[in-house]
Design a protein around this nucleic acid. Structure first.
Lengths: 209, 209, 209, 209
DNA sequence: CATGAATGAGGATTCATTCAT
DNA sequence: GATGAATGAATCCTCATTCAT
């Protein structure tokens, strides 16, 4: 009731929006946007249904907020890390892969699935995501590859076309974790997959190339 | 009015279920299961709302039917092709990649996105898909890799961990086609991606391995 | 295929309407008008759904037909029997009771339940039934009672008010048979009930009146 | 605005379920369960369609609730009145009849019609009703009759078989009130009928027995 | 005549959103 | 601010009715 008493409540209040967004991300990702009831989001966030509307005018606004707190910060961190890197290109790629492996343990991996699933219903979001996130990530990677090729560290390939070969397996692991991976005993060890992937990507699968 | 006269009606009736399932696949994939109105499925299939129920007792049954007409036939074709193959392992992998490139042009590619998005709401389907489709596809690929390794054609790697490196890029292309690819001008040329992918996968990205 | 061959089919055809009405009576009485699906009526009558419409333009028409084939013939028979009776009034009442006991074994007993249940939805039918059936039956009974009183065979009571005392138990038995009687082991033996009823009605329940 | 100000809302909310159930009883009884639209129930209860579902998960649950608030309390009251009675058996029977006459003015009389009409569709309810209500009421009556016979107040008859003779007319009046009675000018005066009934039942119809 | 596939209006149910407290 | 009771638009599903064969 005193000064200290209001502190936790204050902090609580400030945290509300992101607590709600976290709950929403979990449920949206699990059930999809349309199949998620706002009441369940409220329940999971530990607030009442009405409280949601104090922070997010509509369900769609909540959806947008969920995605906003998404990957961009991470992407920016990677951009900075790349700019700061001074070693060889293979080293840089390995470093990025290691970072993605860490991200893979995060709730953030639910976002790609969400964007994928709902891009048909929210074209504006899809565009935003394609332009703000994907395009930037691609530019980052093609830049790395181009530089590696120029330096003679990498074989000359079309950087744009090579991107799925680098990213695809990580995307697959992220999606797997939030979908079939929940429902089968088929195990895909992320670390082993990542290491194998970098080995194959850099050195090839054939016994002597 | 004679024998031929009755044909069209007959043929029409027999074709209905799959016509409806096709329409449903398109819309489910575009909007998700929950966000798709059965009325729109009917409209797209050129029938009335009620007609749907002549063939599919519930929306969920329609969903199951949609998935059933899915990837299994293709997988079986691939299993047979593999069994019939007598060339080198790299050749076989290239042949499979070429086949997947063809499948990529098909409506079937909408199915992975659907299964992904709805596995949280339909655990039974997720399990079925994981066990009937994914497990079999994985077994096929690990078998090929293992044989290639035994023959000395491939470097020794853990076959299971190597699968995402092979499949990931194809999955990514399929998902891209049905999601962000619809909403951005970023172009990913499937053929170029596939060729680059096989080149990288088999020979590696580093300039001299 | 010959003359004789067409006979049964002919007879069949002529019998159709009443076969359908019988099936409808059974189901309407069991489930109510609204809850009965015409498809089930068709099934039970051994015809197709479309065939129903060759004989009855709408579901409501079928309902009316069902009731029409109902109690009127029986009532008329009773009226004639009463007119032809020459014994004492108590004898006549016993004779009517015996007749009602026979009717109780008939499908006709389903009709009162139906009329009861649907009178709210079909006021026209209710009126028709009240005026054509109930009023006539009441007139018949009050006439008997009045004559019996005039003759000194019965104690002087208001004939109209006495009717439920005579009819009520029979109605109860008919309704019981088509409702709770189907779902409990509580047994009400119609013959015993009827005999007790006539004994009580004529002689009273008190030990010395 | 103070304590009293919050009352109406509180009271309102607490009363809602039974207000709704009352509206439902009226309409179910008038139109039958299947023919009653929940929207009309809501309208009559003065709430919206959605509010119904706040209190009753399904239409069938509402139906069960309607019946539950039914005759049992009345039956229990009668059981207690019987236990407390110390006069002669004919007196007791007359007292019960008088009580039933009062009940006849109540909305409760709609329930037998409902149970009757829907027993085919809701066997569980039919069983419950037969066992919880009818069986108990019968036991009560047979007990009274048996005691009366033992005491020599009543002539020796089979108590079970005599029940319809006592109850039938009351049941008939209740059903009449909610069915044909609404649609015809044929008048059945409950009080006159009841008095005549008790007179006839106790003393008989024949002029000297 | 008979059939049963096709239709679409009607009704139960869900859930995003509002608002009095 | 926070709550949760109340609302009603939206959607799945049923079934009386039609009609081409």
């Amino acid at each position: 009731m005193q000064a200290t008493g209001s502190q936790p409540r204050r902090r609580r209040k400030d945290a509300r929006p992101s607590e709600i967004a976290d709950a929403a991300l979990a449920l949206f990702s699990e059930r999809g946007f349309a199949a998620t009831r706002l009441e369940d989001v409220a329940l999971r966030a530990g607030v009442s249904k009405g409280t949601l509307y104090l922070y997010f005018p509509t369900k769609e606004d909540l959806f947008r907020a969920v995605l906003r707190q998404g990957l961009l910060p991470n992407l920016e961190a990677m951009e900075q890390a790349v700019a700061a890197h001074h070693g060889s290109t293979p080293d840089l790629l390995r470093q990025i892969a290691t970072h993605l492996l860490v991200v893979l343990d995060t709730d953030l991996t639910a976002i790609p699935k969400l964007v994928l699933a709902e891009s048909g219903n929210f074209p504006a979001i899809a565009r935003l995501y394609a332009d703000e996130v994907v395009k930037r990530a691609m530019a980052l990677l093609t830049g790395i590859l181009r530089r590696g090729i120029e330096r003679g560290e990498l074989r000359p390939v079309d950087p744009q076309s090579a991107i799925p070969s680098f990213i695809g397996p990580f995307l697959m692991m992220a999606l797997w974790k939030h979908s079939l991976g929940q429902h089968t005993e088929i195990a895909l060890n992320p670390k082993a997959v990542m290491e194998t992937h970098m080995d194959l990507l850099l050195h090839g699968l054939e016994s002597r190339s």
